[in-house]
Design a protein around this nucleic acid. Structure first.
Length: 259
DNA sequence: TAGAATGTTACAGG
DNA sequence: CCCTGTAACATTCT
């Protein structure tokens, strides 16, 4: 499943492809997670034109001309797929067919990917929003004794960071993922704050180059730490593996443990 | 080939 | 009531 940088690129690619295109047909294949009836989402969106596609946290949002919004959360295994007349579409959740023949689908073999009509706007800041100030981070972390990695991935604190980029960010900031959040000194939190924005933006730029028009694909070329095939950090230190919050966690001894 | 997989949530226990 | 940690979800890929 894509993380924040991938989703940012997919949103841009979706917008480039479908902006000003009219939704000719909407197929809801699995309605288990849909927040409204299939009938309602079809009525609200069919015939409408895409005005914009945005990323919000780990979701994508398609904004339509009548001000309805279709949110898509890919969860753990969801994918966006191109659909043509010959596509053998497996595990489709929802399929959007546009005038002129272009179409794409949200698929998920686990059926966990979630389409939402007019998702409620969140008050929790996105990882790339200006609301994530150093102050915000300092205040949030001071209240948490859970491991820093858990807090970075907590969508109730910061929206958008997942398992992969939590590891990447923490290595870049040289903070151990097992560090007690409230024990991290002010100067280190400042560094963490800067790294979050810088690393995510840099990743978006990398992935944009690799996937200029795609709706899927997993680019791991730029990961420095996270992944079983990486044996050493860029500075040559051995990658260690642990579990934090039930998720595989990669790190090195270069990262200071605060507790 | 058995286990892991880039997420979330329900649930149990403190 | 709040907080935390764990398991489950269903299938594919390695």
């Amino acid at each position: 499943m894509p993380e924040l940088p991938d989703l940012e690129v997919f949103a841009a690619n979706l917008e480039r492809r479908f902006k000003n295109k009219k939704l000719a047909r909407l197929d809801v294949v699995v309605d288990k997670k849909l927040n409204v009836s299939t009938k309602e989402v079809k009525e609200k969106l069919t015939g409408q034109t895409v005005k914009a596609v945005k990323r919000e946290g780990k979701t994508l949002q398609l904004h339509f001309s009548n001000d309805n919004v279709l949110g898509l959360h890919l969860m753990l295994h969801g994918r966006l797929q191109d659909v043509t007349e010959t596509t053998d579409l497996k595990h489709a959740i929802i399929v959007l067919l546009f005038e002129g023949g272009n179409a794409f689908a949200l698929t998920d073999f686990q059926k966990a990917a979630t389409p939402t009509l007019n998702p409620q706007q969140s008050t929790i800041p996105d990882a790339l929003s200006d609301q994530i100030t150093e102050n915000y981070l300092q205040e949030k972390l001071a209240k948490k004794k859970t491991p820093i990695k858990t807090v970075l991935m907590d969508q109730h604190t910061i929206r958008g960071i997942g398992n992969t980029y939590a590891d990447e960010i923490l290595w870049e900031a040289r903070i151990s993922p097992m560090s007690t959040s409230k024990a991290i000194p002010v100067t280190k939190v400042r560094e963490l704050h800067q790294v979050i924005r810088k690393l995510l933006k840099q990743e978006i730029a990398h992935i944009r180059k690799m996937l200029p028009n795609e709706l899927g694909g997993e680019i791991k070329d730029f990961l420095k730490i996270h992944g079983p095939r990486i044996v050493a950090s860029p500075t040559g230190k051995k990658i260690m593996v642990n579990e934090v919050g039930g998720r595989k966690t990669y790190y090195t001894e270069e990262q200071e443990l605060f507790q």
